[in-house]
Design a protein around this nucleic acid. Structure first.
Lengths: 233, 233
DNA sequence: GAGTGGTCTAGACCACTAA
DNA sequence: TAGTGGTCTAGACCACTCG
């Protein structure tokens, strides 16, 4: 006997996981269809469906109508990262938070940024550079461009009080966005901002957000040495 | 009138998104309960539930029993990253793939690795260093420790033919794992492996996988300069 | 205690797609 | 064309938690 009753979708999922891990169902193999599993487990098909769909979302199963459900051979694992507001990320670690505005200007962005934000030629943007500090130490520096046509309200905001990161999150909802993680070699500018050595490897996040085809903002976050993002899989 | 009929959970989700983005429902605000929305949209409560649950998973709504559903004030955005097998990542970009085994030895790991994998003192591990190449160029180098007590089968494998990355994914299912992203400054070893300049900033992934409290493997992947991970949010 | 979301059920129909 | 997963429904009960 199984020992524990199978009555909810979590236990169905657990039982399916067990069969995958113990090789009862091998990679690439077809597993019984939802109706059969439902009758075996003594639950409704919808319950089995919920469990299998969840596992398919995590990449462990591959499902196709008519073809059935298979155990994935090369499971493409999915890692989910939380992207918090920087203030919360810092205070959440138990450090004090401080933000310093370094520069604020309204200028025409460099060509790579014009391309990325799909701006018109010679269209000006608000360019803001700021530094987030944890416990008085530089934590991450923020190099941001804001599309003033999409977000005209920015001119009424005092970004020496509140970082653009927070103001945008609270006030400008976005419909889509993209994010990239990479590494960068510290030049004189980065080293000066983060008070680290020249040539040090730094972690970088590039993020752009959009509101119905119009770029709201594009930002580069360069983190102080030692920063890491961690998650479970 | 809404124009489009609301009959399935996707359209319910879209309509809710619209109301959030257009500030009909403001951040922090309580939205109507599932039963009310169901009757407004003319669908079953389960359909509304599916839509709202999905939005709560993405961090846009906060739901609590009895307290109801609120629009998140500081939405903790979630980014989902695919972690493919390295061969597939490279061939998926249209490059040819090649793997070279650099070193394979059975030794006692350094103390930080003993701690991370929760090994017994003086317990030996299989230590494998290899290089994955794309289009003949170094792409990422893999520094891996494998727990031979949990995975005794590794001794029957020829890791000059198949990278441990692939072999483990195909043969050793894991029950949990963790992954971390960071940056590193290239030392002589890294620069030599990846044929890049000394002191260059490199992207790093550290990953460990577990099988019921026993560490299977712990690996550090150091990527060649220019590598980036990208995803939508 | 009462109101809310979380889930299960049994049945139904639909959408996709392999054969 | 037939078999599979995807989804909707109406109703029910439960679990949690706020007041």
């Amino acid at each position: 006997m199984t020992g524990t009753a199978i009555k909810n979708w979590q236990s169905v999922q657990q039982e399916v996981l067990n069969r995958i891990n113990s090789r009862v169902w091998k990679p690439g193999e077809l597993i019984p269809n939802e109706a059969e599993l439902a009758s075996e487990f003594g639950c409704a098909r919808a319950t089995v469906n919920r469990a299998l769909q969840n596992l398919a979302d995590s990449g462990l199963l591959e499902r196709r109508r008519k073809a059935g459900t298979r155990v994935a051979t090369h499971p493409v694992r999915k890692a989910t990262l939380d992207i918090p507001v920087i203030r919360n990320e810092i205070t959440g670690k138990g450090y004090s938070y401080r933000y310093a505005l370094i520069k604020s200007e309204t200028i025409v962005p460099p060509s790579d940024m014009v391309a990325r934000m799909r701006l018109k030629p010679n269209e000006k943007c608000l360019h803001i550079i700021g530094l987030h500090m944890a416990h008085g130490e530089p934590y991450v520096f923020e190099n941001r461009w804001i599309n003033i046509n999409v977000v005209p309200d920015v001119f009424g905001v005092d970004f020496s009080e509140q970082s653009p990161n927070e103001w945008l999150v609270e006030n400008i909802p976005f419909t889509s966005g993209d994010i990239a993680f990479s590494a960068l070699t510290a030049g004189t500018f980065e080293a000066g901002m983060l008070s680290c050595k020249l040539g040090e490897g730094l972690f970088v996040i590039d993020r752009s957000t959009w509101k119905h085809e119009g770029a709201i903002t594009s930002v580069r976050l360069v983190f102080a040495p030692g920063y890491r993002i961690h998650t479970e899989i």
